[in-house]
Simulated assay, not measured.
Amino acid sequence: MNLNRLAYFAAVVDTGSFTRAAERLGITKAVVSQQVSQLEQDLRTSLLVRSTRRVHPTDAGRTFHARCVVILREAEDAFDELAEAAAEPIGTLRITAPNDYGTAVVVPVITAFAARHPACQVQLTLSDETVDLVSARIDMAIRVGWLADSSLQARKIGSFRQLLVGAPAFADRIAAARKPEDLATLPFIANMALREPLLWEFARGDLDRCTVRMQASIAIDTTPGVLAAVQAGGGLSVLPDFLVADDLASARLNHALPEWRLPAGGIYTVYPAARFRPRKVTAFVEMLVAAEQQKESVQDRDPRSKTVSRRSRRGSRARE
């Protein structure tokens, strides 16, 4: 049996289309269709239900696809393991990351990685949804917040602070606030990507605690969208430090109640469970860790960062 046909079939199921599968594989639609048809003849089983708009796997096709994913992953690992002997990372590195952290931090690291390792190509998927790494054939994910228990392998590479910020138009009202409850009546932009977009727990020192329910004037389902609305003067919101650092430094945004802290979260690299981790993955993680360490070093030198604790507490920004 021609094992390339497994990859063609898996691509059709993953994309739901012969056309999109051909685009992913870099071959013609006719070749994909012919090879999948030949696979069905070899197996004497219908694997796909074809319609004018979409292709769906049969029951047998779904079962077979699950096995194909494992086989293809093992094959990739075998090639990667052989390539590990070479100092230069090669092949395609597939990464998924959330929109905000991915755009602000991961994309610059990818650009530097691609320039340093021209034999390695990078495919980045920006999504706030939790992607199944195995079925999507993803090499690694970057996840931000608080990890749920899973069979995946994870490594914490950094942390972030959550900051309540607003545009200069709110500067006077922010400056007049003495406690978090004083800001609850101001326009608030809710981040619907979060589990609890309106309920926030503030702490000051070791004893002062308060939970405030904000009143949403605008609701947006992506963090970059929330940032844009805050910058435009739509209201206050809670945003991660890596997304607002430049705006705060240039006074385009103001940090409300800096003596009060919100729950901090972690930044993790997550991998499918495997005995072997390809050189392309380890090399990229090394560069990402270096970027995180540089960011933390800058924060340590900035006196404004001293006003907010970095102690990690479980909070509402979990994306798992």
Rank of each mutant, 00 (worst) to 15 (best):
R5F: 09
R5A: 11
R5M: 12
L6Q: 06
A10W: 09
V12W: 07
V13M: 06
T15V: 03
G16T: 01
F18Q: 09
R20G: 01
R20N: 07
A22P: 12
A22G: 09
R24H: 05
I27D: 11
Q35M: 11
V36E: 02
Q38N: 14
D42M: 06
L47N: 00
S51V: 05
R53T: 13
P57S: 06
T58G: 10
D59K: 10
H65M: 04
H65I: 04
H65G: 06
V69S: 05
V70L: 11
I71N: 07
R73L: 02
A75I: 07
D77C: 05
A78M: 11
E81Q: 15
A83L: 02
E84D: 15
A86G: 09
P89W: 01
P89I: 00
P98C: 01
N99R: 13
Y101E: 00
V107A: 02
V109K: 00
V109Y: 00
F113M: 00
A115I: 06
V122I: 02
T125R: 02
D128L: 09
L133W: 03
M140Q: 10
M140W: 05
A141C: 01
I142S: 06
W146L: 15
A148D: 14
L152G: 00
K156W: 04
G158S: 08
S159I: 12
R161W: 04
R161Q: 09
Q162P: 04
V165Q: 05
V165S: 04
A167G: 08
A169S: 14
A169D: 10
F170M: 03
A171M: 07
R173C: 05
R173S: 08
R178Q: 15
K179A: 15
P180S: 02
D182K: 00
D182R: 01
D182L: 09
A190W: 06
N191D: 15
N191W: 02
A193I: 08
P197Y: 02
L198V: 10
W200H: 14
R204H: 15
G205W: 12
L207W: 14
D208E: 15
Q215Y: 05
A216S: 12
A219R: 13
G225E: 09
V226R: 04
L227V: 07
G233A: 02
G234N: 09
P240R: 07
D241P: 06
A245G: 07
L248V: 08
L248M: 04
A249N: 10
A249E: 15
A251S: 14
A251T: 10
L253Y: 07
P258W: 01
R261I: 06
G265Y: 03
G266N: 13
Y268C: 03
R275L: 06
F276C: 00
K280Q: 06
K280H: 05
M287Y: 04
A290V: 10
E296R: 13
E296K: 11
K306V: 08
R310V: 03
R311E: 15
R311T: 14
S312W: 12
R314N: 13
R317F: 14
